[in-house]
C-alpha cells in the first residue's frame, strides 16, 4: 500500500455517503415489529472498508442500495456489488468481506447470496462461483492470513 508500490486504481471516483438512517416514530414503539428491510441490510455493509483505499465500499460505489434485496419472510438476501474497474484483483476479497459481514450480522435463517453486478468484471463467473460455494468460503475463513485481511476490512475505522 505504501512505499514505492502503486495502486491499481489510484484516483477512483468518489460518491457521497448516505446519512444515518432516520428514526421513525415506530422505532421506539415496543409493540411494532420492524421487518428487516433493504436499507437495514445496506447499512450493515456500506461501511466495509475497501482493501486498498481508506474509503468505504459505499463511497466507491461498489455497493448501492438498489442492488441490495432482502425478503424477510422467505429469509433470503441478495447483494450485488460492482468492482471499480473490470480487472480489479480485489473482487473476490471484497465479495468475501461482504459475505462474512452478513453471515455475522444476520440471523441464521437467512440464505445469503453475494455476487458481482452482471457485466462489470472480467472474471465475473469465477468469482461468483467462489462466493456461492459454501465449502470454499468456509475454507477461506480457516486461512488465518486471509481472515486477518477480511477482519481489517470489517474493522470500524471510527473507533
Amino acid at each position: 500500500m505504501s512505499g514505492g508500490t502503486t495502486l491499481e486504481n489510484a484516483n477512483p471516483v468518489i460518491f457521497q455517503r448516505s446519512g444515518e438512517r432516520l428514526l421513525a416514530d415506530t422505532d421506539a414503539d415496543e409493540d411494532v415489529h420492524d421487518p428487516i428491510d433493504d436499507r437495514e441490510i445496506f447499512d450493515l455493509i456500506r461501511s466495509i472498508n475497501d482493501p486498498e483505499h481508506p474509503l468505504s465500499l459505499e463511497e466507491l460505489n461498489v455497493l448501492e442500495q438498489v442492488r441490495v434485496k432482502v425478503n424477510d419472510a422467505e429469509s433470503s438476501v441478495d447483494v450485488q456489488f460492482t468492482p471499480t474497474i473490470p480487472h480489479c484483483s480485489m473482487a473476490t476479497l471484497i465479495g468475501l468481506s461482504i459475505k462474512v459481514k452478513l453471515l455475522r450480522s444476520l440471523p441464521e435463517r437467512f440464505k445469503i447470496d453475494v455476487s458481482i453486478t452482471p457485466g462489470t468484471h472480467a472474471s465475473e463467473e469465477a468469482v461468483n462461483k467462489q462466493l456461492a460455494d459454501k465449502e470454499r468460503v468456509a475454507a477461506a475463513l480457516e486461512n488465518s492470513s486471509l481472515l486477518e485481511v477480511v477482519n481489517q476490512c470489517l474493522t470500524n475505522k471510527s473507533t
Binding site: 422505532d27 421506539a28 415489529h33 420492524d34 428487516i36 437495514e40 447499512d43 455475522r104 477482519n151 474493522t155
Partner: peptide, 18 residues
C-alpha cells in the same frame, strides 16, 4: 423484532468476532 435492538446486537457481535 425491533430494529434498534438488532443494530446494537450487530455492533456487539461483529466486534466480538474480531
Amino acid at each position: 423484532r425491533k430494529r434498534l435492538v438488532r443494530r446494537e446486537a450487530v455492533h456487539a457481535r461483529n466486534d466480538w468476532f474480531l
